[in-house]
Computed example of a mutant assay.
Amino acid sequence: MKKSLIALAVLAASGASFAQSSVQIDGIMDAGFQSIDYKGNKVNGIGNNGSATSQINFRGTEDLGGGLKANFRVETDWNTVSNKGNTGSASTPVVAGNETVAAASTFGNGEIRAGLAGGFGAIDAGVVNYNTLGTYLTGQPFGTAIGSGFRTFYVNDAQSTSQVRSDNSVKYTSPSFNGFNASLYYAAKQTKAVDTANTVTNSVTTAYGVKQTSFGGLGAYDMQGTTEVGVNYANGPLAASFSSLKQDFKDVGTGTTDQTVNTLGANYAFGDAKLFGLYQTNKTNTSSVNNKAFSISGTYTMGAVVLMAQAGELKNDVNSTKSKLVALGADYNLSKRTAVYFRAESIDDKAGTVQAALTPATIKGADTKFARTAIGIRHAF
């Protein structure tokens, strides 16, 4: 349930202004039991985000008249099962070209944007989500959680941890015409930062390499350039989305490549069932990366119960290897905002696509199996 708050400044204004400006708080809490096989090492216990990303959002809007509105969003993703996980340590510089990796659970570590919307469409600036994220969510029903293939089969951009947004970005979204809209996204490449030296702590050298200092102002650190074009359609039972995202890593730290991620997602509803399809290519200009992935998934609703399943394959054309994904899920909706859930996925990662963000080196085993199972509760507010 969304709560609307009225800013103090608005409280002092007229009754008309009172109705035109508001701040809203909403979010998700997700926690439960998880059993995880990190390529041969098994871990069991209470974990979070088995079915959705736990978060709190502050959103604001002001009606400026004439169809024009100002708006903002500040998203914070948090850890629902660990106090220490919410301390948000930011002592280690982020690797160059991967700056939008905020410290765990720090305030505002998700999408941050301010913008205007009207008859011309919408324009937002800040740390704005890619259209690719929406395309990805259009093409399968598991969100970005267990069973989705996110950061395993599929990437959201070319960064090493597959981020869903870029620092210093601006995004334009057109008005909708007969169900269609388009988007343009831009974040300028930066290559002017001063090199960062290695540091020594307790006789241990940390090699920061070249130009890795983050958490600064414009130009204070090097950053890959990002451009994206998106086209979306939603009308009746059909929804479809295509995104082409290109990132320029040349001269960013030690980067030498351009990388393009093209993603196509669609779903079609018929009665209580919905069918999904997702296809993605991920390739560098030097062909050092050349992956093709696809999956077919579906949902079926029976009263309060929603069943879901997905199967897919990824081919690594660099070394001619393949990974396979199978996922199952079920929600039992206790209300419109609360559900208990089951999620399970199994990945035979012969192509080596499961990222370090999901398989910490401290516990990752040596084989190719990556499997996760979760039973938990999700509450939206």
Rank of each mutant, 00 (worst) to 15 (best):
K3I: 05
L5E: 12
I6L: 10
A7K: 13
L8F: 11
A9F: 13
V10P: 06
V10T: 15
A16D: 15
F18E: 07
Q24L: 13
D26H: 01
G27D: 06
F33A: 14
Q34M: 11
K39V: 02
G40Q: 02
K42H: 09
G47A: 14
S51W: 03
I56N: 05
N57Y: 05
T80M: 11
V81T: 03
N86A: 04
N109S: 08
A117M: 13
F120M: 02
I123K: 03
I123Q: 01
D124W: 05
V128C: 00
N129L: 03
Y130S: 03
T132D: 03
L137C: 00
P141Q: 01
S148H: 02
G149K: 01
R151L: 15
F153H: 05
V155W: 12
D157L: 06
Q159F: 09
Q163Y: 05
S166Y: 09
V170E: 13
Y172V: 14
G179D: 02
A182K: 05
A193P: 00
T199M: 06
V200Q: 11
T206H: 08
V210M: 08
V210H: 11
F215H: 05
G219T: 10
Q224C: 04
G225K: 09
T226E: 04
V229R: 09
N235L: 12
L238T: 13
A240G: 13
F242D: 03
S244T: 13
K246T: 15
G253Q: 01
T254F: 08
V261R: 10
G265V: 06
G265F: 04
N267W: 02
A269T: 14
F270V: 10
Q280K: 00
N282E: 05
T284K: 08
N285S: 07
S288T: 14
N291H: 11
T299M: 07
V305H: 06
L307F: 15
E313R: 15
S323T: 14
G329E: 05
G329C: 08
L334R: 00
R337T: 14
D348L: 10
D349E: 13
L358V: 14
P360A: 10
I363D: 07
